[in-house]
């Protein structure tokens, strides 16, 4: 378990950070208006920050996805190791995807490629076993299980329709 320290910053928001095993302080400054600053402490001066990177709520969500979902995929891979020829991949709904704003059923993924969509990761939260009525949005990550051929096709469909 990682212990996250929450420090109020009166007039600004809160600072939430933890000390990593490598001895660096990592966390975010959470502004009142919803913006985030990603902060990483300096090596020689743990009180100061070497980086303080402003992120919009969307960017923060994307970063959380990047950090959070590989674990999910790793866990799924673990379960499917015994089944030969089957692998797990996460496929994004890109900004130009025709399925941004349409339902999962519209992709007809199972019929067209044989792959299964086992979860949708949105803003760092996984929605497991989404039904056909699930509304997709740009920035979602689909966790997809299938053959490598099916996964390749699925990626193409999500990109071009």
């Amino acid at each position: 378990m990682v212990n996250v320290d929450v420090t109020p910053l009166p007039g600004i928001g809160t600072r939430q950070d933890f000390a990593s095993k490598a001895g660096r302080r990592i966390g975010v400054v959470n502004h009142r208006d919803g913006r985030f600053d990603l902060i990483v402490s300096k090596v020689d001066d743990p009180d100061a920050c070497t980086a303080s990177i402003p992120l919009t709520p969307e960017e923060a969500g994307a970063l959380a996805n990047l950090l959070g979902s590989p674990q999910l995929v790793a866990a799924l891979d673990e379960q499917q190791r015994d089944v030969t020829g089957i692998s797990t991949k996460q496929l994004p709904i890109g900004p130009h995807s025709p399925f941004d704003g349409r339902t999962l059923g519209d992709t007809a993924m199972r019929t067209r490629t044989g792959v299964s969509i086992v979860a949708v990761v949105r803003a760092g939260t996984a929605h497991p076993s989404p039904g056909p009525e699930f509304n997709l949005a740009g920035g979602d990550l689909l966790v997809v299980v299938g053959t490598s051929e099916g996964l390749r096709k699925a990626a193409e469909i999500l990109e071009r329709g």
Binding site: L9, G11, D37, A48, S52
Partner: peptide
């Protein structure tokens, strides 16, 4: 002070809550 701390990327620093507490 709030503007300067934010411009210099010091909002996440450990001394910042102390500065803000003095201001409060």
């Amino acid at each position: 002070i709030a503007k300067v701390l934010s411009d210099l990327g010091r909002l996440g620093n450990r001394e910042t809550p102390t500065i803000l507490a003095v201001l409060v």
